[in-house]
């Protein structure tokens, strides 16, 4: 069968998509971790990893290899089934979220007409995995981390949805390819700057990263929900975190930064440039601020982000109505 005709069959599309997603996933796991370590290093007057590969580029691969080689430890007293399942419950949603990401006008696994909704509903499943991990670990620190995680993601879903509602109202579509096409003239970051900031803050909170990393909070809860995890299971959590980071950045690119739109360079390249620019900002924020207290985190969400998002939504609809 020829390559072009392979693309047209259902099975062919599935195989190619899985292969493509795995490539992007692996590439990102290597690059994002490396970026994090390098950027944090340079902010802190260090160099970061330098030994494995040029400028330590293969350090993540070496770390991964080490984690694969480690023994899988199941501590005493844990709920074995849940404990084993939890990392994958966190990991698989992040793979599924790749389905709707429009890497370019043609490179997209499936252009669902409810793409946006699909993306954010799937992202919620990871929270269940985190809670499973904390619950099954039979460790008080883990449990506290898990409970915090639930509270946090319920709270921060709201400003995220409110901020992207603006985009939906403007484009009249949940289809991601159409949202990108609507930005061919002007990126939504220009008229919708405040929702962009709200989205970014809430996304960092959804990712459990500093300054919102209360479920992990290494100085309070040791390592939060993954205190008892080691070896490959820990690595799965770790990779899921960095994959999620890529995904929310990709979504920010799609919604606010014009997706694949851009002059001269091919669309895919533009997409990755913009995505990693957002990844850079997320990393930069992490290495600048301390962690918030859980109640302050909630206050910030309910007393600042949500009202702001609501007001913004109101203004957007009002302006659209007038126009």
């Amino acid at each position: 069968m020829e390559f072009a005709s392979l693309l047209n069959t259902f099975l062919g599309r599935v195989i190619l998509s899985v292969a493509g997603v795995m490539i992007v996933f692996t590439f990102n796991a290597l690059i994002a971790v490396w970026l994090e370590r390098k950027i944090s290093g340079h902010i802190q007057l260090r160099l970061g990893p330098m030994e494995v590969g040029p400028h330590g580029l293969l350090q993540s691969a070496a770390d991964g290899l080490k984690l694969i080689c480690k023994e899988i430890i199941t501590p005493q007293g844990v709920d074995k089934k849940l404990f084993g399942l939890a990392p994958y419950m966190v990991f698989f949603p992040s793979l599924l979220m790749f389905v709707v990401i429009p890497f370019s006008d043609k490179l997209q696994v499936q252009d669902l007409n409810i793409g946006l909704l699909y993306f954010f509903s799937i992202s919620c499943i990871a929270t269940i995995g985190i809670f499973m991990a904390g619950w099954a670990s039979n460790n008080k620190y883990s449990l506290m981390g898990a409970v915090r995680s639930i509270a946090q993601s319920i709270a921060y879903e709201i400003p995220i949805i409110l901020s992207i509602l603006n985009i939906v109202i403007i484009t009249q579509s949940l289809k991601l390819s159409e949202i990108v096409k609507a930005q061919s003239n002007i990126w939504f970051i220009v008229p919708q700057f405040i929702p962009f900031i709200i989205y970014l803050i809430s996304a960092i909170a959804e990712l459990n990263r500093t300054p919102f990393d209360i479920p992990e909070a290494e100085s309070e809860l040791v390592a939060g929900f993954h205190t008892e995890y080691s070896g490959m299971r820990f690595a799965v959590f770790f990779m899921a975190e960095y994959t999620n980071m890529f995904l929310v950045s990709a979504m920010a690119t799609t919604l606010f930064l014009g997706g694949w739109n851009g002059p001269i360079l091919p669309p895919v390249v533009w997409f990755f440039i913009k995505t990693y620019a957002i990844v850079f900002i997320i990393i930069w924020v992490r290495w600048t601020f301390p962690r918030l207290r859980p109640d302050q985190l909630m206050n910030f969400c309910w007393k600042f982000l949500t009202p702001l998002a609501l007001v913004n939504l109101l203004v957007t609809t009002f302006i659209l109505k007038i126009l």
Binding site: S40, I43, T210, D213, T288, R291
Partner: peptide, 10 residues
């Protein structure tokens, strides 16, 4: 302790 790593190294 508060969760910021960068000031530590500065």
């Amino acid at each position: 302790d508060l969760g910021a790593f960068t000031p530590f190294l500065w």
